[in-house]
C-alpha cells in the first residue's frame, strides 16, 4: 500500500485536486457541542477531514482546538453531536486513532524503545515483535542509536520524535497531533515540519494537526480549518493546493503561500487583543 503511493506521487497530487470538491472523509465531525460547566468550548461545529490528507485546526488559544481534538480521540465526550471515523461512530479511544501530545507524555522511567513500543505493549503484542516494529519507527524518525536512552537524556525535539514514533507504530489510520512542535525550538521545528510533509506523502494516513502558528499551518496543510472563539465556530476552510507539489525549500517563497498567510492573518487579527 505504502509502496504504491510512494511510487506515484504525481498521481496522488492530481487525485487530490480532483477529489477536493467532494473528498472522501476519514473523520466527520457532525454538529458537535461541548460545554465545560457554563463555558461553551464548542458550539454546533461540523467539519470533514479528507482521507490521506493533513488538516490543520488553526485558531487563537482558547478557541477549542484541543477540546475538538480530544473529542475526536474519544478522550472527551461531546455534550451533543457525533463523530464518525470511517463511518463508525466514536464512543471512546480506539485503535484507529493515535494521539501525539503537546507535552510528549512519555514514560520517564522507560527507555526510548519501550516508550515507542508502549502502544503495542498495551495491545498485547509480543515483546520481540513490538520491539522490531518500534526499531523501524525509531529509525524512521531519526533516533537510531538512542533506543536505550531515557527521555530525560533527550532534547525536547528528540522527545517529540519518540512521541511521534509511538503514534506511528500502532499503525492507526488517523493521527491526532496537538501542537506537537510548540515545545520545540525553532530550528528543530522547521525540520519537523519538513519531516511531517514527507510522512503525509508516504504514509497513507489522515493527519489532524492542531497549531496556533499560521505559517506552520499553511506550510504543512492540505486543508486548514480556521476556528474562532465566542461563539466557537469554523469560520473558514482554506485548501492551499498550488504549492503542495513543490519541494520543501521553495514553499516558503511561493507567492500563494505568502498570500494565504496574509489572508489568514487578516481574518484572525481582530481576535488578537
Amino acid at each position: 500500500m505504502k509502496g504504491i503511493i510512494v511510487a506515484m506521487p504525481q498521481t496522488e497530487a492530481t487525485m487530490k485536486k480532483q477529489t477536493s470538491a467532494a473528498p472522501d472523509s476519514a473523520v466527520s465531525v457532525r454538529n458537535v457541542s461541548k460545554n465545560y460547566g457554563t463555558v461553551e468550548a464548542l458550539k454546533n461545529l461540523s467539519l470533514e477531514f479528507p482521507r490521506g490528507q493533513l488538516t490543520s485546526l488553526l485558531g487563537p488559544s482558547g478557541c477549542g482546538k484541543t477540546t475538538l481534538l480530544k473529542i475526536i480521540a474519544g478522550l472527551l465526550q461531546p455534550t451533543s453531536g457525533r463523530i464518525e471515523v470511517n463511518g463508525a461512530e466514536v464512543e471512546g479511544p480506539g485503535p484507529d486513532r493515535a494521539f501525539v501530545f503537546q507535552d510528549f507524555a512519555l514514560l520517564p522511567w522507560a527507555s526510548v524503545i519501550r516508550n515507542v513500543a508502549f502502544g503495542l505493549e498495551l495491545r498485547g503484542v509480543a515483546k520481540s515483535e513490538r520491539e522490531s516494529i518500534a526499531e523501524r519507527y525509531i529509525r524512521d524518525v531519526g533516533l537510531t542509536g538512542f533506543e536505550h536512552s531515557y527521555p530525560h537524556e533527550l532534547s525536547g525535539g528528540m522527545r517529540q520524535r519518540v512521541g511521534l514514533a509511538r503514534a506511528l507504530s500502532v499503525d492507526a489510520q488517523v493521527l491526532l497531533l496537538d501542537e506537537p512542535f510548540s515545545a520545540v525550538d525553532e530550528q528543530t521545528r522547521r525540520k519537523f515540519q519538513e519531516d511531517l510533509l514527507s510522512l503525509v506523502k508516504h504514509e497513507n494516513k489522515t493527519f489532524i494537526f492542531v497549531t496556533h502558528s499560521i505559517e506552520e499551518a499553511v506550510y504543512v496543510s492540505d486543508q486548514i480549518a480556521i476556528l474562532l472563539p465566542r461563539p466557537s465556530r469554523v469560520s473558514e476552510i482554506i485548501r492551499p493546493t498550488g504549492f503542495r507539489h513543490k519541494d520543501v525549500d521553495s514553499i516558503r517563497r511561493d507567492p500563494e503561500y505568502l498570500d494565504i498567510v496574509d489572508q489568514i492573518w487578516a481574518s484572525l487579527r481582530s481576535y488578537v487583543e
Partner: peptide
Amino acid sequence: INRSLVEMGRSFGASPLDAFFKIYLWAAL
C-alpha cells in the same frame, strides 16, 4: 500524575489494570 500521561494510556487503549501497574504506580513512585 501528569494529565496527558493518563490520556496517553487511555488513547492507546490501556485496560484499568494495565494503566494502574504500567503508568500510575510508576508515575507516583
